[in-house]
Structures are given as structure tokens and as C-alpha cells.
Computed example of a mutant assay.
Amino acid sequence: MPTCNHCNAHVSDQFARVFANEFGEILACPNCSANAGIAEVAQQRAREVSNAG
């Protein structure tokens, strides 16, 4: 079952197909970000991770 990499909340397979990045990571979900901004939050978190490493 897919989970959010940020908060470990369960997400549906359909949610994962839509919002996972190219590596299958889900960086934001309705549990840890506003529904309207999930894609934007995911992109921001991905940038933060890539800049940190």
C-alpha cells in the first residue's frame, strides 16, 4: 500500500498514480498538506530535498 514519504499516511493507489514523482515517492498528501496545494507542496519538498543533498 502506498504511503506518503513525508508523513507516512496511507494513500490510495489512484492518489499515488497521480501525485507520485518519477521515483514513486509521494512527497505530500491530504494528511500533511492542503488538498488544493498538494502538487505545489510536493514540488517544493522535492526541491528542498535535492538542494540539501
Rank of each mutant, 00 (worst) to 15 (best):
M1G: 14
M1T: 13
P2D: 09
P2K: 07
T3M: 10
T3C: 14
T3G: 14
T3V: 12
C4M: 06
C4H: 03
C4K: 03
C4D: 04
N5R: 07
N5P: 00
N5I: 00
N5V: 00
N5D: 08
H6M: 10
H6I: 02
H6V: 04
C7Q: 04
C7A: 13
C7K: 06
N8E: 09
N8L: 11
A9Q: 12
A9D: 09
A9F: 05
A9E: 15
A9H: 08
H10S: 15
H10N: 15
H10E: 11
H10L: 14
H10W: 10
V11R: 07
V11T: 05
V11E: 07
S12V: 05
S12P: 06
S12F: 10
D13T: 09
D13Y: 08
D13L: 03
Q14L: 12
F15E: 04
A16W: 06
A16E: 11
A16S: 14
A16I: 01
R17H: 10
R17Q: 09
F19K: 02
A20R: 02
A20I: 04
N21A: 06
N21M: 07
N21I: 01
N21Y: 08
E22W: 08
E22Q: 14
E22G: 15
F23D: 13
F23L: 12
F23Y: 13
F23I: 02
F23A: 14
G24S: 07
G24E: 10
G24F: 08
E25P: 01
E25V: 02
I26F: 13
I26P: 05
L27W: 04
L27K: 06
L27I: 01
L27G: 01
L27Q: 00
A28N: 03
C29K: 04
P30W: 09
P30L: 11
P30N: 11
P30A: 08
P30C: 13
P30H: 07
N31H: 15
N31M: 15
N31K: 15
N31F: 11
C32M: 08
C32I: 04
C32N: 06
C32P: 03
C32G: 07
S33H: 05
S33G: 13
S33F: 01
S33V: 03
A34S: 08
A34E: 09
A34P: 02
N35P: 05
N35K: 14
N35D: 15
A36R: 12
A36M: 09
A36I: 06
G37C: 11
G37K: 07
G37Y: 11
I38D: 01
I38Q: 05
I38R: 01
E40L: 12
V41W: 00
V41R: 02
V41N: 00
A42L: 00
Q43F: 02
Q43V: 00
Q43I: 00
Q43C: 03
Q43L: 10
Q44L: 15
Q44Y: 09
Q44P: 00
R45C: 02
R45P: 00
A46P: 00
A46C: 04
A46K: 05
A46I: 00
A46S: 15
A46F: 01
A46R: 06
A46M: 04
R47L: 08
R47I: 04
R47M: 05
R47K: 09
E48R: 06
E48S: 04
E48Y: 02
V49R: 15
V49C: 09
V49F: 12
V49E: 13
S50N: 12
N51D: 15
A52I: 03
A52G: 07
A52N: 14
G53C: 13
G53F: 14
